[in-house]
């Protein structure tokens, strides 16, 4: 489930509010807030669409865990999915490296 909005890097662009398929976030006068965490389906899409790598989705789909932005930054956790799919400037070449055709038919 979504656990972290890093207030150090969040620019309040509210893209996460717009793109969340299950409407988990609410817009505020400041940073967006995780208003309905129980509705999070752990799809990681908000993280992928965050241009500042300010969001972190924990892989635990049913239980909330306590996480802090500083620890995640130290472990290079923030933005790791975006880099893996090639949605950052430095990783663009990864968009076309799908090797599923080698795995199908197994």
């Amino acid at each position: 489930m979504i656990e972290v909005i890093d207030s150090e890097t969040c620019t309040s662009c509210n893209i996460c509010v717009r793109v969340c398929p299950t409407n988990v976030f609410d817009k505020t006068d400041g940073f967006p807030v995780i208003a309905r965490q129980e509705d999070c389906q752990t799809c990681f899409m908000c993280e992928l669409y965050c241009p500042e790598d300010s969001l972190y989705v924990s892989p635990f789909a049913e239980t909330s865990v306590s996480l802090h932005a500083t620890e995640l930054k130290d472990a290079d956790g923030l933005g790791s999915y975006r880099r893996a799919v090639g949605w950052t400037k430095d990783t663009k070449d990864r968009r076309g490296i799908d090797r599923s055709h080698e795995l199908f038919g197994h």
């Binding site: 990681f44 892989p59 999915y81 893996a84 799919v85 490296i97 090797r99 599923s100």
Partner: peptide, 15 residues
């Protein structure tokens, strides 16, 4: 090949 093809598969493990 798995890692290149389906980065999302590894999220629960890496994390």
């Amino acid at each position: 090949a798995m890692r290149a093809s389906q980065p999302n598969f590894f999220l629960p493990f890496d994390r």
